[in-house]
């Protein structure tokens, strides 16, 4: 009962935040609504008993990425940006993407959840916490992708330093 109510609240936050993100004129307002949307997603993770994921979502997206977004937005000349055309002409690509997602959702609903193998949520009352589960899987089953992702990030960091610094 409480879970259902919370689900609808978080879902409304996520979707409403998303809609407001693309309709606000001021870029800073858009960023704030994007943050709301991301927090809504974190809430949905919490409802799925993925506490670790929820915490990391907030730290990385809200605390890291959105702070950098705001940083850039604040230094940009907003008056000029407000005069420009609001929606860039990618209407058809956007429509195609939305249609694809809608078809997927429709297909899923028509087949019923029973036909698919869904990821199992961690079971409450188990001795191992959520973070332990994540780390166990990450460092055994998915070790190679994890390490590859770290190398990718390292390359990106070095690339950023090389591009930013004129004299190394």
């Amino acid at each position: 009962m409480l879970d259902t109510a919370l689900f609808y609240i978080f879902a409304a936050l996520t979707l409403g935040g998303g809609v407001l993100t693309i309709t606000r004129r001021s870029a800073v307002h858009s960023a704030i609504w994007l943050i709301t949307s991301l927090l809504g997603v974190a809430g949905l993770y919490l409802l799925q008993r993925a506490e670790f994921l929820a915490g990391v979502q907030v730290i990385l997206y809200v605390g890291g990425i959105m702070v950098l977004f705001l940083f850039v937005i604040m230094l940009v000349n907003l008056d000029q940006a407000a005069k420009e055309k609001r929606f860039s002409g990618q209407k058809w690509i956007a429509l195609a993407c939305v249609a694809a997602v809608a078809l997927q959702a429709l297909w899923f609903v028509s087949k019923g959840a029973g036909r698919f193998t869904l990821g199992q949520p961690s079971i409450a009352g188990e001795n191992l916490g959520n973070s332990e589960h994540v780390s166990r899987v990450l460092f055994s089953q998915y070790l190679l992708p994890f390490e590859l992702a770290s190398i990718l990030l390292l390359v990106a960091i070095i690339g950023a330093v090389v591009m930013a610094k004129k004299r190394i």
């Binding site: 506490e51 915490g55 730290i59 605390g63 702070v67 916490g129």
Partner: peptide, 22 residues
């Protein structure tokens, strides 16, 4: 007493930075 206690504090403090910036 949540099982991600410290993570909760860290995430809240990272949201708190927004208050200063905004």
């Amino acid at each position: 007493d949540v099982n991600i206690g410290l993570l909760v504090i860290l995430s809240l403090s990272s949201v708190g930075i927004l208050g200063t910036i905004l």
